[in-house]
Write a protein that binds this DNA or RNA. Structure first.
Length: 280
DNA sequence: AACTAGATCAACCGCGCATTA
DNA sequence: ATAATGCGCGGTTGATCTAGT
């Protein structure tokens, strides 16, 4: 099928938006809503294509856009979400109110990616760079760690909300949106739902192709590629069990009590916070 | 002061998906 | 069932800014 151009290009202005154009667009949308983006420029009297108007509105003119530099908290969250979602900037942006996918993408490409690389972390896989030909494995993969982070943040958020529902909200900052709130939101979002239901969820984007999932009547199990021997997550009801090394049952690393594993990973997360360099 | 290289970010482009005719 | 259309997304580009020489 031959694709029609998104708009008639001839006679349309391109490049940076002038203040008057911004004013016209904002004024029109405030009065009429954006409706069909394709027909908007004509109706508003703008010599722009609809796509350009939509981009300008969503990335710059929208009233709920939060301008200014990213906070350390936001940067930390972007890194964590990127580890879970990969380059799905719109999905990441959905968890950061007032931030656009474009802004987050730029932040990642200009700051965070380089910062991770300078710390010896592969920004795509979130795994430490391994020397060429090295077969040595880390004790716990970052994929496993991310899941521990995810789970611990969720538990923390649930606990906090429980406290608030019991009238203990004074113990926490009432108006402050914490990191755990974001995680809770993700947990209850489409992404979290996929995770809970055991749909193939990629925690380490680069390994997406190698992740397989099987569902049994006992619950759902997400296994990494057997030859990695890195991690396995079992989900039953609403609980998650982490079993590092489970793909190799004879492994001495296998832990009988998975809850101990979770606890260990939890302490690992809080004790050796990967994101500590962001505070610097 | 002038030049250059690197960093930043707004905007564009093309593709894929969903919806409609 | 198929083509046409609209929209949103991720990748890329290029203008502008800034720091270093």
């Amino acid at each position: 099928m031959v694709r029609a151009p998104c708009c008639e290009k001839t006679g349309l202005k391109r490049g940076p938006w002038a203040q008057e154009e911004d004013d016209i667009l904002v004024d029109y949308i405030n009065k009429n809503g954006h409706g069909s983006w394709r027909s908007l420029p004509k109706q508003a009297g703008l010599l722009r294509c609809g796509k350009s108007c939509r981009l300008r509105w969503t990335n710059y003119l929208r009233p709920d856009i939060k301008r200014g530099p990213f906070t350390a908290e936001e940067e930390k969250l972007v890194i964590q979400l990127h580890a879970i979602l990969g380059n799905r900037w719109a999905a990441i942006a959905a968890q950061l109110p007032g931030r656009t996918d474009n802004e987050i993408k730029n932040l990642w490409n200009t700051h965070l990616r380089k910062r991770l690389m300078s710390k010896g972390i592969d920004p795509q896989t979130h795994e430490p760079f391994c020397p060429e030909g090295s077969t040595k494995r880390l004790p716990a993969s970052s994929s496993t760690r991310h899941m521990a982070q995810w789970e611990s943040a969720r538990l923390e958020a649930e606990a906090r909300l429980s406290m608030e529902s019991l009238g203990l909200s004074q113990l926490t900052s009432p108006n402050k949106i914490t990191n755990t709130d974001y995680f809770l939101r993700v947990w209850h979002s489409e992404v979290g739902e996929s995770f809970r239901k055991g749909k193939p969820v990629c925690f380490s984007p680069a390994s997406q192709a190698s992740v397989s999932s099987t569902t049994t009547d006992m619950g759902t199990k997400l296994d990494h590629e057997p030859d990695t021997g890195l991690s396995c997550v079992t989900m039953k009801d609403d609980s998650i069990t982490f079993n590092p090394g489970v793909t190799n049952p004879s492994s001495p690393n296998e832990m009988e009590d998975s809850s101990d594993t979770v606890l260990q990973l939890f302490f690992d997360f809080h004790g050796h916070n990967d994101m500590s360099f962001l505070e610097a």
